[in-house]
Design a protein around this nucleic acid. Structure first.
Lengths: 219, 219
DNA sequence: AACAAATTTAAGCTAATTTTAAGTTACATT
DNA sequence: AATGTAACTTAAAATTAGCTTAAATTTGTT
């Protein structure tokens, strides 16, 4: 899951970036509203963590602007403003969740998982398909209780497929989930990762639908 | 929106019922886990407000049970347990939000509105015609629950027809949807694709209107 | 800095799809 | 019923997507 972190407090932002990266989220960090608005034009994020106290513009206005454009991006507000009025305003203007500072990182992570779960329609922390178990919490994949050793990219590809089990993910969609910006991937990386994954997974686990994409059967 | 309020504290439950009814939610109030589980069997609620400290069973187990049955009911936990561990547990077990007591009613209302808003925008595009189901989101076509294997162009032709069921699509219109730019298709590709599609679909599913084009009956 | 691991690039290969084209059948109008 | 046209069928040729492999490059670690 790609997350756009909009936070001008460098210290907090760094701590969060590290914590979130450890959970294998892809973090892009910006410090101003302007950058945030610009960023979502170019990259498709699955979630935004938005601080309200930004130097150039009120975070609430960023929220307004995004919703006005009917961009359906889950937004979690993270702010020092903890008055009930502020919370209500934030939530009613289209935020999906509201956490006031000081907050505990594990709670933020849990609330992000709620967002993530909702995006992937039907995935909890533990997803089991055939004899493969995918623990999005611990970032561990097991086949018949044997843990799989996956590289980061392999993990991300598999995760995207598992979270969308039953649906087809195009190569472009998978690429988008692998790279921060639409990097100039003029190559067949995804295919290579799929190839490596298949060596580690049961036969026919990852299916290809020619011309359309890859998928994993639901259950 | 119909809400099932599961709360054994009569005083709080009454206050909430009044507040929620005033917001024109339809409230059913039960005081035990047993009643709650029973209730959702008979009535379709759009949301559940769940207290964890119930007399007969831990609310967490109610949550577990509901999620185990893959019931996709938004659940907001409302409880005195405000430790981070409890929050994380609740959220990871499938709760959509977590509010610890004491809380302010307006915040609860705002969080309910978030749930309500989300319910309005969570449907995948499913088109069903006779015994053929077309999921434009998942790129999957099923005939009597059997998935169809379609090539990309076949899929696109069928999609164009299904999305315009009841109307006639000329060969030119179909071609336009198969090719980015009016490539010099001086051939009968569309006819060939239709031919292949017909082999995979029920008889007479795709009709031809001589001299005009192809169509699929609506419903 | 050196090493190992991970990732990307590139190229050859195979098999499936798509296009082409030609022959056949069905339709509508006279 | 004959005719011209449209649609259907079939098979081959052309194209392309995906698999595999190996080498090149990048990244991360000691």
């Amino acid at each position: 899951m790609k997350i756009l972190l909009v936070e001008d407090d460098q210290l907090l932002a760094n701590a969060l970036s590290i914590a979130l990266t450890r959970e294998s989220y892809l973090i892009t960090h910006v410090t101003t509203a302007k950058e945030a608005i610009n960023q979502i034009k170019y990259t498709e994020y699955q979630s935004m963590i938005l601080d309200l106290g930004l130097p150039d513009m009120d975070g609430i206005d960023v929220l307004k602007r995004i919703r006005k454009q009917k961009i359906d991006l889950p937004i979690l507000i993270l702010t020092a403003r903890d008055s009930i009025e502020d919370k209500i305003k934030g939530l009613d203007l289209g935020a999906d969740d509201y956490l006031s500072k000081p907050f505990e990182v594990p709670e933020l992570l849990a609330r992000l998982r709620v967002i993530e779960r909702r995006l992937g329609t039907a995935n909890s922390a533990l997803i089991t398909i055939k004899n493969v178990t995918f623990d999005t919490r611990a970032n561990v994949v097991t086949v018949d209780t044997h843990p799989l050793v996956l590289s980061k990219k392999e993990y991300l590809v598999l995760k995207a497929l598992v979270e969308n089990a039953g649906r087809i993910q195009s190569r472009e969609q998978l690429e988008a989930k692998l790279y921060e910006w639409q990097d100039d991937i003029a190559s067949n990386t995804v295919e290579v990762h799929i190839h490596h994954l298949r060596k580690k997974l049961p036969a026919n686990f990852i299916k290809n639908i020619r011309g359309i994409g890859y998928s994993i059967d639901k259950a």
